[in-house]
């Protein structure tokens, strides 16, 4: 009896199931307690720049999610062969190729959105969330957890950007997804249309989040 349980335990240690409790945390943590934008304060520039309207924001979130997943998995697979001294260059190479793919796909199938996002698609390469996850997670973990980590952080990015874009589009231009909500006579709001509005909405979201989960910055 005792030998049997030991064997099972050993097997568990060798082959952890993909959705173990620890691995599920990889997805759930970035959504709230360890959110890449509101807690780690990474990738804020794109959060301010692309959130004027909901539709481009959605495309942006999907693009970042795509790039994050594939680069995280790729770097995780390559983690034992990348020489430590040139790892940043290798990471950039992988991310840049993926971003080029995303850019071309957007130009081919969603030209309007691609024009609205303009340089910010290309700037995904420099998004700190992606580089941060590659450095902090993919280089030290197996592809399975790396995949989950990428999904979690990509969704954590989206979970902040979409509410910001929601409020900015609603109060800035009185519409949602391009459909007019607040009536033709709504005069618009220049503060919400400018990045200042994103900064304020983001601040209010952080306020709301921290008053809910009691997170405080350690001094």
């Amino acid at each position: 009896m005792s030998t049997e349980t030991q064997a099972v335990e050993a097997e568990v240690k060798e082959r952890e199931p993909l959705f173990s409790k620890k691995n599920r945390k990889l997805i759930s943590n970035p959504l709230d307690a360890d959110n890449p934008i509101t807690v780690q304060v990474l990738g804020v520039c794109s959060a301010l720049a692309v959130t004027v309207k909901l539709i481009p924001t959605l495309y942006m979130c999907i693009s970042v999610l795509f790039v994050l997943i594939f680069s995280n998995v790729a770097i995780s697979l390559l983690r034992n062969v990348i020489p430590g001294r040139i790892r940043i260059i290798v990471q950039l190479l992988v991310v840049a190729s993926l971003v080029a793919v995303v850019d071309q796909v957007l130009q081919a199938f969603a030209y309007d959105v691609s024009k609205q996002l303009s340089v910010f698609v290309g700037l995904i390469i420099t998004n700190c969330i992606i580089m941060g996850r590659l450095e902090a997670f993919a280089l030290a973990n197996k592809p399975g957890p790396a995949f989950l980590d990428a999904v979690g952080n990509g969704l954590g990015y989206a979970v902040i950007l979409i509410p910001v874009a929601f409020f900015r589009e609603l109060f800035g231009s009185g519409s949602l997804f391009g459909f007019n909500i607040l009536g033709e006579n709504y005069p618009g709001n220049g503060v919400m249309m400018s990045p200042v509005g994103a900064c304020i909405v983001l601040g209010l979201l952080i306020w709301f989040q921290r008053s809910r989960n009691g997170y405080t910055e350690e001094a």
């Binding site: 005069p187 618009g188 709001n189 220049g190 503060v191 919400m192 400018s194 200042v196």
Partner: peptide, 10 residues
């Protein structure tokens, strides 16, 4: 300043 930037036309 909020009025000035939010409602430049008005």
């Amino acid at each position: 300043v909020f009025l000035y930037i939010a409602y430049p036309v008005e």
